[in-house]
Design a protein around this nucleic acid. Structure first.
Lengths: 358, 358
DNA sequence: CTGTTAGCGCTTTCAG
DNA sequence: CTGAAAGCGCTAACAG
């Protein structure tokens, strides 16, 4: 093996590929110091005489020294990597969330290992193990189950839940006020005079959807309108029959308005209405959740509950950084407020008899 | 120090946090073998007697053993991490590209470290160093400069360029046929009868934009139409005056159609037209590049050159995996074909004099 | 201020 | 088939 190493070194003249990574020992030798001194000089921790430091830095620069992260991680038992698991990178919401996380992490000189777990419990758990193996400095996740967070916490890895909360262990979390969002959307429709409001909600036990549903109910209660339970339609993610079921809701229960509790469902609802030739606002009002690009570009624009997605990600990262800096601090919890953006897709209901009014 | 370790172990009863990671040595001791045997059993490389293997696997399972990735990386001098750098994670195109990469990497049990470099050369280079430090198994990037790829290649890290090509070293690449895309868009407009076609293109030296411009020119040449150079408008990324400049193009050079060479510019153009009250197709035709969601939802829909974005990402990851498996293979190059999706935003030009014709 | 020493946890010859 | 030994590159006591 020594023979192989040597021959590789001799072949180092090959254009393009350096034969061997340059190590601390190399630059120490070059500068005539020990490896420890080199370590101190380059990491900036501990005393090093200015002349020695200069020689070391110069040598490092000249030889193109890049410290080996795995050696450092092995020694320090923690890395500069943060594991991030989201449900679906293909969905603009999660992509933007990840962008916010990455931005903040980058500013603090941490790297993001990003995975998309498809809300699959088994995958989520498997990623937790991977993050454990990497000695991640922390993990930020949109949880689909509590097992991953438990496993991580048990092994001393800090977890931040974002968008949803499911953990059975105490941990930092940042969410938006889903109940308020649901209330804003529903109250807006009720104020316009709607009494039969269809609710399209994800069929999960997530706090997001539970919250939006709760807001839908409380808005009704505040307006003293009783909810027709048949107007509430839980739809499984990526269900192939989502649009058919929405159409059936329209046919069978005659809502005058629809509140779609996430961007995916809003898109489905919008398409169903278009295919059926139903006019937004005039025939059926529509409120979406999450202000994605298309909602402001279609005509009429879609009234939506906007959430500060990028900021959600940033806050999650900040929470994690705070905990890394101060491991003993109390679990942080942040709840960001959504806002209602009224556009042309909502209007007072038109009764069939009043169709010819202006 | 030994004392500290022991006391920590004794404190291991603390709910929630395990005192110390369980190591190979622990499970070897538990199973009554040496660490080497344990390593062989768990990694599946090398001979281990079935009974020993069983005991080892059982012990690993029971103690919740998670191998330390950094120790393995340090020893093997390469990790299961792939560095991915894209220009702007907030842009749906790059997000989808990343999603495709992640999906393929995940299937092969590699992790994606994702960074958004804002097309900033300095950041790109800094990330290259980070990936080097992590002993990344490879790097996939949408390059903004050639320096990063050179640095990585020089240090023996495989690079795949995706979407654009800038490297000065031979490396794998997967792009779409930008010239063909530009030609498709432009020929479509020329066939409709347009003779003054404005081109909105990013002001970069990227092969994407150069290709789309070349396609614009060659379509003109094939139709024997001479290009009025004043119709070509290079726009810097995130330029605050992008929409003003597009408006000025409209005013000063009276194009009857616009070809926006990326999704960002298409959105700008669409907004300018809307604000000015210009009707798509009737007053000005518009062709975009990249079939993002809103283009099929607005009315009329936008005619676009669609690119297989997710597939682009998948291919890039496959190219990298191929190279990891066979480091000596010839640099791979794949060029995916874009397709023209005709929607309502394009129609024959209306001359001012013919405004009243049906 | 600096060098010596001793590992972090894993893999890999190599000898048994 | 198995264990002993060495070492990946770095850092952190500790003694000088």
């Amino acid at each position: 093996m020594a023979g192989r190493l040597v021959s590789v070194r001799e072949g180092g003249g090959l254009v393009g590929a350096q034969s061997r990574q340059v190590t601390l020992a190399d630059i120490a030798r070059e500068a005539g110091t020990s490896a420890s001194t080199a370590s101190r000089a380059l990491s900036g921790r501990g005393y090093v005489s200015p002349p020695a430091r200069d020689r070391l830095l110069e040598a490092a620069e000249r030889l193109g020294y890049v410290p080996d992260a795995s050696a450092r991680t092995l020694k320090q038992r923690t890395s500069r990597v943060v594991g991030v698991a989201v449900s679906d990178l293909g969905n603009q919401f999660y992509a933007l969330l990840a962008a916010g996380i990455e931005q903040t992490l980058r500013e603090a000189d941490y790297q993001m290992v990003l995975v998309s777990d498809n809300s699959d419990r088994a995958q989520e758990l498997s990623f937790a193990r991977t993050f454990l193996a990497m000695r991640a400095a922390g993990v930020i996740m949109t949880p689909a189950d509590s097992a991953a967070a438990s496993l991580l916490a048990r092994n001393g890895v800090d977890v931040v839940e974002v968008d949803r909360q499911l953990a059975e262990v105490p941990c930092d979390a940042v969410v938006i006020d889903n109940e308020e969002g649901g209330r804003l959307a529903t109250a807006h429709l009720l104020e316009l005079g709607h009494r039969r409001i269809g609710l399209l909600v994800a069929d999960t036990d997530w706090t997001t959807d539970a919250g939006r549903l709760a807001g839908y109910r409380s808005a009704h209660a505040e307006a003293s309108v009783v909810v027709d339970e048949r107007l509430i339609l839980p739809i499984v993610f990526h269900a192939p029959d989502a649009e058919q079921r929405i159409a059936a809701l329209l046919d069978e229960h005659a809502p005058t308005a629809i509140f779609a509790a996430n961007n995916q469902l809003a898109e489905h609802a919008w398409k169903v209405l278009r295919v059926r030739g139903l006019r937004l606002a005039q025939d059926v009002s529509l409120v979406g959740f999450d202000d994605v690009a298309w909602t402001s570009m279609v005509d009429p624009g879609i009234t939506v509950v906007a959430q500060p997605t990028l900021e959600l990600g940033r806050r999650a990262a900040h929470l994690l950084l705070r905990r890394i800096a101060d491991p003993g601090c109390e679990p942080g919890f942040e709840c960001l407020e959504p806002t209602l953006v009224v556009r042309g897709s909502t209007a007072p209901p038109t009764t069939p008899l009043a169709e010819h009014q202006p």
